[in-house]
Design a protein around this nucleic acid. Sequence first.
DNA 1: TAGGCCATCTGGTCCT
DNA 2: AGGACCAGATGGCCTA
Length: 223
Amino acid sequence: MKSVDRMSGSEEGSGTPDLDRNAAFWPEDDEEIEAGYMHLGSEDSGGKRGNGKSRQDCSDSSGSEGPSPSRKQSRPKRKGSNVSANGGSGRRRKSGISARERNLRRLESNERERMRMHSLNDAFEQLREVIPHVKMERKLSKIETLTLAKNYIMALTNVICEMRGEEKPYTFLDVDCGSNSNNSSGEQGPEEDMVEPNNNSLFQENLEHRTLTETASIPLHDM
DNA sequence: TAGGCCATCTGGTCCT
DNA sequence: AGGACCAGATGGCCTA
């Protein structure tokens, strides 16, 4: 497939990718913000990665609902969502906060988010290391990692149940099952027999390596 | 070139 | 109030 490894480069190298650039972009005073707060990115100097993204429709969203670019509309509101959490005016101006301060807050927030994602990636990496899978050139993608982990857990559960003389709660389907679209996208009770091909290529891969998963008893014995 | 995967930014919402 | 969490958007990189 693809080399996910390449990401490691950007991951590490990211550091603080664009603090300076962003800082430079942000307007210096509230006046400018009044005019173009949601404007950022309009001419975002095209940084290399993501950051350079233009927040296209933000500009014209200056409308009443505040930061409501089209992309937000599809998102379901969470409980207790007050449509205008920002006060209803649409402008997210907090009284007494200067543009510079907002800028700073945003940059800090970005940094935290970056760190959060990095820790998430670390967790994925640790998960990859404990999931038995056939060696591959590339490393497992996130979705593959999660799917394999799930299958691995199911296989181990089967082993445990078998050792207890109980019935296996999970059944691993055969290759043909690829055709059955039984799965309701991840809705499965513990009772249901499953191994849903939610990721086709991976699923096939899983089937190829099913013996490996089903011999999950091997690592189990080691415990 | 299209599609997959990813990092990053961002604003809304929730939680402490 | 501030940080964490979440999900949408965007653009880069890579492979088929």
